[in-house]
């Protein structure tokens, strides 16, 4: 019996208990064969070795497993991998480029928005979805947006500061880009 996680293979399959799906993760297309009951979090973590997506509670409450699903934050621990067929997933590994951190990552570092780091990937992705929609949120809007992600270390205050700092950073970056656009 092969294990769930070795079934991730681009080879054609004749196994009736297996479904073939194509998922885009951080811009890369993956065609994989999975058992229908395989959870999306497990496909990402064990199947594709992107271990920045953590699993904390298994019940959609803690948000450590948050990924962006076509830009919307979802808890990947309670979604089946097969539901991601044809969709675009962004994980924490998709935030930074090889040389540069995303402004949200920079701000979490600068504002001491993390301690053990376990909730951090989910927090940052939820923050990204918020800032994509609302580039200038109030503190209350940030707190509300993050209320599906639990943190046990920080008391949230520095996480909220990090998100507000990231918003300011992204806005000023946007303004610079616009200015450069005008002058060129």
């Amino acid at each position: 019996m092969t294990s769930l996680f070795t079934k991730v293979s681009p080879e054609p399959t004749t196994d009736a208990g297996v479904r073939r799906i194509t998922v885009s993760i951080n811009g890369n297309q993956h065609t994989v064969d999975v058992e229908p009951r395989l959870l999306l979090a497990h496909l990402i973590r064990q199947g594709l070795d992107l271990t920045g997506t953590h699993t904390g509670c298994d019940t959609t409450h803690c948000g450590a497993c948050t990924v962006l699903f076509d830009g919307t934050p979802v808890k990947s621990c309670t979604m089946f991998a097969v539901q991601a067929e044809g969709h675009e997933i962004t994980t924490v590994e998709g935030l930074a480029t090889a040389s540069e951190l995303h402004p949200i990552q920079e701000s979490f570092k600068d504002e001491h928005g993390l301690q053990c780091g376990f909730c951090t990937p989910g927090m940052m992705l939820t923050a990204k979805a918020l800032l994509d929609e609302n580039p200038d949120p109030t503190e209350d809007e940030v707190r509300w947006a993050l209320s599906g992600n639990l943190c046990r270390c920080t008391g949230y205050q520095n996480i909220v500061k990090s998100v507000l700092a990231a918003a300011a950073r992204l806005r000023s970056q946007g303004a610079t880009d616009e200015e450069e656009g005008e002058t060129s």
Binding site: R45, T51, G52, H54, V92, L101, F108, L114, T120
Partner: peptide, 14 residues
């Protein structure tokens, strides 16, 4: 934080 914000921490399940 350099590894944690990149999702490159090394926790037991990783």
């Amino acid at each position: 934080d350099n590894r944690f914000v990149r999702g490159k921490g090394n926790y037991i399940d990783d």
